[in-house]
Amino acid sequence: MKRIALISPLALAACAPPVPVAEDFIPEYLGVETKLLDGDLVQFNVAMTKAREAANVQRYAECAAAQYALIRGYGFARHLRTNVTEEGGVWAADAVYTISPTLPDGLATIDAEVTVAACKETGIPTV
C-alpha cells in the first residue's frame, strides 16, 4: 500500500516569506544631531531605517545641513565629507558641511532654500 502525504495549501503558505507591503519601503527617519565644530564648520549625525542605499542617508544629512544653514541666516552650504554605516538595518551618516552667506568655492555646494524645498517635496525631514 502506497502512502500519499497531503499537504494543506495553508501549511505551505505558512512557510513562505511574508509578502512586502508599502510600509516596508517607507523610510523611518530617526533624528539629527548637530554639532558646531568651528564657526562655519558643522557636523551632522543622522540615522534612519529602510534606506535602500547609502545615498538615501547621505541625502537626509544634506537636508539637515540645508535647513541648518537657513536657521543660521546663511543661504549656502558646501559638503566636505560623509561617512555612512549600516548595522542591523539602521543606516547612519556622519557628515560635515561648511555654511556660508554666499556661494562657496567648490563643486559640492548646495543652495539651502532650493534643497530644503526639494526635501519637503520628497518627505525627507530637516533639522
Rank of each mutant, 00 (worst) to 15 (best):
I7A: 00
E28Q: 13
W91L: 04
K35S: 14
V114T: 12
Y29D: 07
L6E: 02
I110Y: 14
A64L: 11
P125K: 09
Q67T: 03
N56A: 07
E62H: 13
E23H: 00
C119D: 04
A69Y: 04
G31A: 09
V90Q: 11
A47I: 05
T126K: 05
D105Q: 07
A54G: 05
E86R: 05
V21T: 10
K2P: 15
E33N: 05
I4Q: 11
T102L: 13
L41S: 10
A13P: 02
A93Y: 07
K50F: 03
E62T: 13
E62D: 12
P27Y: 12
V90K: 06
E53C: 08
E28R: 09
P18D: 04
P9D: 00
P101F: 14
P125E: 05
A93P: 15
A22Y: 00
M48R: 07
T98M: 09
K120C: 12
L30W: 04
K35I: 12
E86N: 14
D38Y: 15
I26W: 00
Y68N: 08
G88M: 14
L103T: 06
C119T: 00
E86S: 06
L41C: 10
K120V: 08
A22I: 02
A112L: 09
F25N: 03
A22E: 00
T115I: 02
P125R: 10
C63E: 10
I71D: 15
G73C: 07
Q67E: 08
L41Q: 11
K120E: 13
I4W: 09
R78M: 08
N56H: 15
G75S: 15
L37D: 08
T102R: 10
G123T: 13
I99N: 07
I4Y: 11
T85W: 06
A64T: 14
L103D: 02
G106R: 14
E23N: 05
A54V: 02
C63K: 07
A108T: 06
M1L: 14
G123H: 12
V57M: 05
V42Q: 01
V42R: 06
T126H: 11
A117H: 03
P101I: 07
